[in-house]
C-alpha cells in the first residue's frame, strides 16, 4: 500500500548523508520549508551542496543550515538580501563555494534534471562572465550557451496540501521552485500545511503528481520566516 506520510520532520529528513546534494524550495521566505531545514540542522549532515534561489535571511531556515557549517557549496541566483548576514560573512572568509546561475537557467537546469535532459542551450548569459568557459553554439544566427542539468539526492519542498500519494497543491507565489525540485531529486521530501484523504484534491488541480514525491509530513502551522528574522531568532532556538 502506498503511504508517503511520515510522522515528523525528523523522520522526513532521515538518511540525508554527508556530501549530499540537497535542493531547497523557496523564493526568499515564500515556499521555504523552514521546519524541514531545521530538522536537517538537528540531523547534522555535513558537506552538503545546496541548490536554492537565495542563501537565507537572519539566523533561521537556510541561513541556520549555513551558519551550522553544513553547507560547503551553494548553487543559487541571488545570494544577497537585505537581511542576509550569515552567507556574506562565510563567503567572504572563503569558507563556502558559490555557483551563481541566472534564475531562469537555474529553474531550467533543475527541470532538465528531472525530465531526463542532460543539457540544453539558452540565450541567457551569452557574452557575460557567467558564460565563461562554457560551450557557445549558434542556432539560426543567434548564440546560445550550453548549460547542464542539475540533479539532487534530496529535495526539501514546502506545499499547501497533499495526500498519502504525495500529490501536491501549492499556495500562491510559494510554488516557485517546488514543482521542478520535486522532479529532480532521488528522494523528494515535502512539508504540507494539510494532508487530506485521497480524492479530496481535484485531479485537475494537482500541480505536482505524487510520482515525484517520496515523503510528506504535515506541518500545519509553519513558521513565518520573516517574523523569526524580525524577532532576531536563531536556530537551534536559544
Amino acid at each position: 500500500m502506498i503511504n508517503k506520510i511520515v510522522d515528523s520532520a525528523a523522520e522526513a529528513v532521515a538518511g540525508i548523508f554527508d556530501g549530499a546534494t540537497v535542493m531547497i524550495s523557496g523564493f526568499g521566505e515564500a515556499g521555504s520549508p523552514v521546519e524541514l531545514i531545521h530538522a536537517l540542522v538537528d540531523q547534522g549532515a555535513k558537506n552538503l551542496t545546496v541548490v536554492s534561489n537565495n542563501a537565507g535571511s537572519g539566523h533561521v531556515g537556510l541561513a541556520a543550515l549555513i551558519e551550522n557549517r553544513q553547507v560547503s557549496k551553494i548553487i543559487c541566483s541571488f545570494p544577497r538580501t537585505t537581511i542576509s548576514v550569515v552567507f556574506p560573512e562565510i563567503y567572504r572568509r572563503g569558507e563556502i563555494e558559490l555557483e551563481l546561475v541566472p534564475q531562469g537557467t537555474l529553474a531550467e537546469r533543475i527541470r532538465a534534471g528531472g525530465a531526463g535532459i542532460p543539457a540544453f542551450y539558452t540565450p541567457a548569459s551569452v557574452n557575460t562572465p557567467l558564460a565563461e568557459g562554457k560551450e557557445v553554439r549558434s542556432f539560426n544566427g543567434r548564440d546560445y550557451v550550453l548549460e547542464h542539468a542539475i540533479k539532487a539526492d534530496f529535495s526539501l519542498v514546502k506545499c499547501h496540501t497533499t495526500d498519502k500519494f504525495g500529490n501536491l497543491v501549492y499556495n500562491k507565489t510559494a510554488r516557485n521552485f517546488g514543482p521542478v525540485m520535486c522532479m529532480a531529486a532521488k528522494t523528494t521530501i515535502v512539508q504540507a500545511r494539510r494532508i487530506v484523504e485521497l480524492g479530496e484534491i481535484d485531479p485537475e488541480c494537482v500541480v505536482t503528481p505524487g510520482i515525484f514525491v517520496h515523503r510528506v509530513v504535515e506541518v500545519s502551522n509553519p513558521a513565518d520566516e520573516s517574523k523569526l528574522v524580525a524577532e532576531e531568532r536563531r536556530y537551534p532556538w536559544t
Binding site: 515556499g31 538580501t81 531562469g104 529553474a107 499556495n171
Partner: peptide
C-alpha cells in the same frame, strides 16, 4: 508572506491572475 514579488515585497493578485512555477515563468520570459 506567500504572495510576494521579485523584490520579495508583499503584493496582491488581480482578478484573472495566474500562479505558476519557476520554469514556466522563465519560459514566458525566454
Amino acid at each position: 508572506p506567500e504572495l510576494v514579488n521579485a523584490g520579495k515585497k508583499y503584493v496582491t493578485a488581480i482578478p484573472g491572475a495566474a500562479y505558476f512555477h519557476h520554469a514556466d515563468s522563465f519560459a514566458m520570459i525566454r
